[in-house]
């Protein structure tokens, strides 16, 4: 049974919220209309700020009463002070950004810990699509190749290799299939969506 979009969103939020202790300061990169921050505020009492470049999303944040800062994450987070947040979150937005390494390094500069979620390109059905000669379109990669906002296509294995190279410690990893069931065995093959808790060694 597949999720409705709303259920799916709640599921993602719940996974992330599980890693955020109550009352923390949280920075959400690519925060959309601020829904996650509002959820974290309501369920965890966090003090949250969002960063977003899209005009309509910024307007959405302001409507939602979420503190949002309209800047381009690709240019870095230079205005944010070191360790000024407990957690920094990038929820299914890293794959839509070019400056992957810089963003990961910046995240672990401005916060003690980072939470990253992304669609795993090596998920079984994605591999099957490629084997059949087509770019994958799935629950977690819902765009056609010609209209996708994603610019970086990577796998769980790729991401972990990059973390190792950047000296980033993987403190916890969760992977889920398209129905939201946790995946233990071979997550790079069986996981559609991956969540990480990252820190500095």
């Amino acid at each position: 049974m597949n999720f409705t979009p709303k259920e799916r969103e709640r599921f993602d939020f719940a996974v992330i919220a599980n890693w955020i202790p109550p009352g923390e300061r949280v920075l959400d990169l690519g925060c959309g209309d601020g829904r996650l921050l509002r959820y974290l505020r309501e369920t965890k009492g966090v003090v949250g700020y969002g960063v977003e470049i899209d005009h309509q999303s910024v307007l959405g944040c302001i409507r939602n009463g979420v503190d949002v800062i309209q800047i381009d994450i690709e240019r870095g987070l230079s205005g944010f002070e070191d360790r000024s947040f407990n957690h920094v979150v990038i929820s299914q937005a890293l794959q839509a950004m070019h400056a992957t390494e810089r963003i990961l390094n910046e995240m672990l500069r401005v916060a003690e810990e980072a939470v990253v979620s992304f669609p795993n390109f090596a998920f079984r059905t994605n591999r099957e699509a490629i084997a059949e000669g087509h770019m994958p379109v799935s629950e977690d990669l819902p765009y056609e190749w010609y209209d996708t906002p994603n610019v970086r296509f990577f796998t769980i294995a790729d991401f972990e290799a990059l973390c190792a190279r950047l000296g980033i410690e993987i403190r916890e990893r969760l992977a889920f299939d398209e129905s939201g069931r946790p995946v233990i065995e071979d997550p790079n093959l069986n996981g559609s969506l991956a969540f990480y808790r990252l820190g500095r060694k």
């Binding site: 005009h55 944040c61 302001i62 503190d67 949002v68 002070e81």
Partner: peptide
């Protein structure tokens, strides 16, 4: 932000 105040910032095109 340094002072942990509530702030929203919009850069209008």
């Amino acid at each position: 932000l340094h002072n942990r105040r509530h702030v929203a910032y919009a850069e209008i095109d």
